[in-house]
């Protein structure tokens, strides 16, 4: 079971606020730890899973709390996506 090391409440923020909060929170935890971000923004349902996959993290679960959702994302090793320098 992955450890949720940090919970961030981004309710009340429209896109890209919840994603920005998630990214900031993930920077502050270790690889293998997870962050849960609360969001009531409908766009988060698409943005956060797509971003997590691209950025090399793992979406563990999307919890439905009724009026909002909790996105639990496990921090992965950062993919090397830098542009090649000539």
């Amino acid at each position: 079971m992955v450890e949720v090391a940090k919970v961030v409440d981004a309710r009340g923020s429209f896109c890209p606020g919840p994603l920005m909060e998630l990214i900031r929170a993930l920077k502050s935890v270790e690889v293998g730890q997870a962050v849960e971000v609360y969001s009531e923004d409908q766009g988060s349902l698409k943005d956060i899973p797509a971003w997590a996959e691209k950025a090399g993290h793992k979406l563990i679960e999307i919890k439905d709390y009724g009026d909002y959702r909790g996105f639990i994302v496990e921090k992965g090793e950062k993919k090397s996506r830098r542009r090649k320098k000539e």
Partner: peptide, 13 residues
């Protein structure tokens, strides 16, 4: 700003 933040969130220069 939206394009910039979207790009940088996935490391697009």
């Amino acid at each position: 700003g939206m394009i910039a933040v979207g790009a940088s969130s996935v490391d697009h220069p």
